[in-house]
Amino acid sequence: MMPELGRYAFSVLGSWGSSIGLVLMITLISIYRAKASKAALEALEKNRKGK
């Protein structure tokens, strides 16, 4: 199953790994910040209604 990378293994896996890792990082950060802002906004709006 695993393709034969030979002497290119380091560069191929390295570039795939770093690219996917970086893209995953920004995705997770975006999702986390979206969740945080959503929670903060909901809390704030509940507060306003409560008054």
């Binding site: 393709p3 034969e4 030979g6 290119y8 560069s11 191929v12 570039s15 795939w16 690219s19």
Partner: peptide
Amino acid sequence: GFFFTPDDFRQGASVKIIYVHVPL
């Protein structure tokens, strides 16, 4: 791109980097 593409006759397996490098 990773598992089912052939190697380039000059670049060998390193051609697989194209699938992440070019789109980004």
